[in-house]
Design a protein around this nucleic acid. Structure first.
Length: 457
RNA sequence: GGCGACGUGGCCAAGUGGUUAAGGCAGGGGUCUGCAAAACCCUGAUCGUGGGUUCGAUUCCCACCGUCGCCUCCA
């Protein structure tokens, strides 16, 4: 398959360097709950993983939690809890949020605070080989030690200095130097180190943890486009310095476009507070609805969150669900999924064109519905649709209502009753039954094969 | 200011240097149905504006307009 590599700024043919695909995805800073912008990113990389596995690759997937950093410390202090409690709570919530999105769990979820020895070892080495220096208990990375600094984000130090936001730190040799190890202030969480009590800087943990759990080079390193600079740029600098440039840090850098809100047209971020909670979206539009919303555009394009788009995606999910759930006939010729399956695969191979792949799925759904209307066989095509939808992480499952299994015999009873009324042409009563059931979320659909029921999504 | 992305039918959104520019949602007409729902059939765009390259551009180049992102908070 082909993938766009941020580093080369072009689409390249992907294959892993070894037996398995080493995939590291930047996880959230756990100072606050995630929002659907995060969900978008994790859905994108979930689909990448699923497709790679579908193609026969073995994938080793690592995703970190950043659980020590200024925001967490400040937030914990503000609410009077400990950094650990705060982080733990948001990690727990992360898993609760992700579960209904059908996101495959990473194989390893390292946390910065659990990897301090590896981080210290890395910083020591960077000092030893001249890429870092200690200053007053802090340790900084020396960006001038790397002529290729800026290669990922396509910028150089001079142009960065032209930007207004670069503030020289009092101890920095160069304004672009970034902190690897930060001396702690009284009352802050701290670990012992050769430079006194302190804590890891923001970027170093991903280098230390990816190196430890996957080994370099990583085949894929992913995250949101907002991480390209400085986070990923700095990861490259420190990682390649650590290995003395004997090997590249990452082969393929992948970055998803950012989500924004329709009203403000600005990207969704916790710092602006313009976020939408994941659970609310899942509740209203379903996991499949959210997935289709995300996957209906290319992963590198920004997408705008809007009720209208989510509503459309929800209806689209129902369309696929109906196609897969409604039995076909037994006449020939059977609906043939092969050409559309090929279209799906071609789209996915082309830099994960999920929108194109979804298009093939909807055409496949139409093919199935058409065959069924003709009384033809649909099993094979339906199995293909399920399989390919699964590659996109779509469950196509009926919405669950609390206690619905207990209600089933009663629904069947009411349907039977309604059939009797219809036979007696008591349409007023039979329609009332149908309308009342609909109010309760049970939709009845009559067909030549009898009446079917489904839950309203 | 520097770097980058985007602007396709009512909405969302793929895509291609040249036969009919995917798909979803919404709308209109029809089939089926006692009625409905679902499904199926039919129905709409010359691709931001202005130039240029080319036999031919929505697709390549330039300019302009508009929107967005990054430039150490960030998925």
């Amino acid at each position: 398959m082909k993938l766009y590599n941020t580093l080369s700024r072009r689409v390249e043919e992907f294959s892993p360097s070894g037996d398995e695909v080493k995939m590291y995805i930047c996880g959230p800073n756990v100072y606050a709950p995630c929002h659907i912008g995060h969900a978008m990113s994790y859905i994108v990389f979930d689909v990448l993983r699923r497709y790679l596995e579908y193609c026969g690759y073995k994938v080793k997937h690592v995703q970190n939690f950043t659980d020590i950093e200024d925001n967490i410390i400040n937030r914990a202090r503000a609410e009077g809890s400990s950094v650990d409690e705060l982080a733990e709570r948001h990690i727990e919530q992360f898993f609760e949020d992700m579960a209904p999105l059908n996101i495959l769990k990473a194989h390893i979820y390292p946390r910065a605070t659990h990897e301090v020895p590896a981080i210290i070892e890395m910083v020591q080495r960077l000092i030893a080989n001249g890429h870092a220096y200690e200053a007053g208990g802090d340790v900084y990375f020396r960006v001038n030690s790397r002529p290729d600094y800026g290669k990922l984000s396509a910028r150089d130090l001079d142009s960065m200095l032209a930007g207004a936001r670069v503030q020289p730190g009092e101890n920095k040799e160069h304004p672009g130097d970034f902190v690897l190890w930060k001396a702690s202030k009284p009352g802050e969480p701290a670990w012992d180190s050769p430079w006194g009590k302190g804590r890891p800087g923001w970027h170093i943990e991903c280098s230390a943890m990816s190196l430890k759990y996957l080994g370099h080079p990583l085949d894929i390193h992913g995250g949101g486009q907002d991480l390209i600079f400085p986070h990923h740029e700095n990861e490259i600098a420190q990682s390649e310095s650590y290995t003395d440039d004997r090997k590249p840090f990452v082969r393929f850098w992948l970055h998803n476009g950012l989500m924004r809100l329709a009203e403000s047209e600005e990207k969704m971020t916790r710092h602006l507070g313009n976020l939408v909670p994941i659970q609310e979206v899942v509740h209203r539009y379903g996991g499949d609805g959210l997935r289709i919303f995300v996957l209906n555009s290319h992963y590198r394009s920004p997408i705008t969150f809007s009720e209208e788009s989510l509503e459309a995606a929800k209806r689209a999910a129902e369309r696929l669900r109906t196609a897969v759930a409604t039995p076909g006939g037994d006449a020939d010729p059977t609906a043939d999924p092969a050409p559309l399956k090929q279209r799906f695969l071609d789209a996915m191979d082309d830099d994960m064109n999920t929108a194109g792949a979804l298009g093939a799925l909807f055409d496949l759904a139409r093919e199935i519905n058409r065959a069924r209307d003709d009384g033809r066989k649909t099993e094979e095509a339906q199995a293909a649709l399920r399989e390919l939808a699964g590659v996109l992480g779509l469950t196509l499952a009926a919405p669950q209502a609390a206690g619905d299994t207990a209600a089933e015999p009663f629904i069947e009873l009411l349907m039977e009753l309604r059939d009797d009324l219809r036979d007696a042409k008591q349409y007023e009563l039979s329609d009332k039954l149908r309308a009342r059931l609909a109010q309760m979320g049970v939709i009845l659909e009559d067909s030549a094969q009898g009446t079917r029921w489904r839950l309203k999504s």
